[in-house]
Nucleic acid binder design. Structure first.
Lengths: 147, 147
DNA sequence: TATTGTTATACTCTATAACTATA
DNA sequence: TATAGTTATAGAGTATAACAATA
């Protein structure tokens, strides 16, 4: 018998466990049940403008048929519209509507307010530490994209 | 026209956006696609032992029928077993199997290794800042439970 | 009668395979 | 022939309503 395969650094395991709990917290912090992909797609359209349907599928990591259905549901709910492409008849351009934008902004606002309420209960020093670590977390997520 | 309703502190919005991206990162960091509820349920059974089916439903925030089905799928896949209750014939106790435990541990190990690889690319100061913030994040998630 | 769990039904969300329309 | 998108089909995962078994 050999030692257990990979023994990860306990400091790392501690951080990973903290992240795991934070993950659960964030999962419950945003209101109005909506799939992660739906919410992410709407945010993308709000942030970066119109996209081809196939671009959305690739960006969100789902198949083209899955995105076809997602866009159909969003369109049925009045959150996006399908528009043709001027020079290529095969292409479907997806555009967010005013209602879609409002939904994105409202969800973000509620989430921010809830997070603010939690942060308000931390000590000033702890709050400062969390706020200060934001750029580092961004760096971490940027690194992950490259990997 | 009045000003936009609630204007949240930009520092807070920044942190919330960082958390949002971290959420996406963590979601993609763990291997073998498995629903958040399935993974969370298995982790709970691994960590805190046997549970009644109804306890699991409440703890995971899903309905009893949804948990009935989830447990059935986990049982079919050999990750949990249903056991009777010694003194109350209505109760179904759910127990994780060795295979279920192995799955939980393997997923955690892979996630830790991937996280370690990312952290290794940070500067020592940034890495220290992230590690140092772990207890504060735990405090934050504890506060959320009370709310 | 109340509690615990399951079954019935319906909808979202995802995948793979087959198809249509345009280039 | 290749590309963009849809339709067909199947399964996971969720809900509410109705039911069965036990307390």
């Amino acid at each position: 018998m050999t030692a257990p395969t990979t023994r990860t650094d306990p400091e790392l395991a501690r951080l990973a466990a903290s992240f795991e709990r934070l993950f659960e917290l964030l999962r419950r912090l945003t209101p109005e049940p909506m799939s992660l992909t739906s919410a992410s797609t709407l945010r993308r359209l709000d942030r970066a403008g119109d996209h081809r349907l196939s671009e959305l599928a690739t960006a969100e990591g789902v198949t083209q048929p899955a995105m076809t259905q997602l866009v159909s549901r969003l369109e049925r709910d009045g959150l996006v519209v399908r528009a043709g492409h001027p020079s290529d008849g095969r292409v479907v351009m997806v555009r967010i509507t005013d209602a879609g934008r409002e939904l994105v902004h409202r969800r973000r606002e509620v989430r921010d307010l809830r997070l603010a309420a939690l942060l308000a209960e931390l000590s000033p020093a702890d709050r400062a530490a969390v706020v200060a670590v934001a750029p580092v977390l961004d760096h971490l997520t940027e690194l992950a994209k490259g990997a």
